[in-house]
């Protein structure tokens, strides 16, 4: 065995080189695969339109706050939004308002909005 012929080792070397090349190729492919995925999927995943719609609906509710409050129907509409959100949008929603505060000369209600659909959580206090 001492005088083993080592001429054939270049074949193993070639094999190793190919293997290394494959690894780098795989690394690059993995990186590039992320690009297309994150943009289109990221857009789909983040419920921008849902949150915008919910906000405008909540503002609509507080637009008619006076009438709804007088009729004692404010709770009904709130309940509608919370229940339907949970059932149809898989989102936990709650919102409420506080006593009006003076913000640069206008009386505005601080409105708190909470939204969580399991992936995205959104909290806001907005003066409306």
């Amino acid at each position: 065995m001492a005088c083993m012929n080592e001429d054939g080792q270049w074949i193993v070397l070639m094999g190793l080189l190919t293997a290394l090349g494959l690894f780098f190729l795989a690394l690059i492919i993995n990186q590039s695969a992320l690009v297309g995925q994150t943009t289109a999927e990221g857009v789909l995943e983040f419920p921008k339109n849902d949150i915008r719609d919910l906000r405008s609906e909540i503002f609509d509710v507080y637009d008619s706050y006076g009438t709804l409050h007088a009729q004692g129907r404010l709770g009904d509409v709130e309940e509608d939004i919370i229940r339907i959100s949970l059932e149809r949008k898989n989102a936990v929603v709650h919102f409420g308002n506080d006593t009006p505060q003076d913000v640069s000369g206008r009386d505005l209600h601080p409105v708190t909005i909470h939204y969580n659909n399991g992936v995205t959580e959104y909290d806001e206090i907005v003066y409306y």
């Binding site: 190919t18 494959l22 190729l25 795989a26 492919i29 695969a33 690009v35 297309g36 943009t39 289109a40």
Partner: peptide
Amino acid sequence: LALIMVVSMVPGLLAGLESSGIDYDA
């Protein structure tokens, strides 16, 4: 033979990436 097998696997690896629209749509 092994090299040919490996090389023939590579295009399969790239198959999902052939769309050129990915970046432009974003």
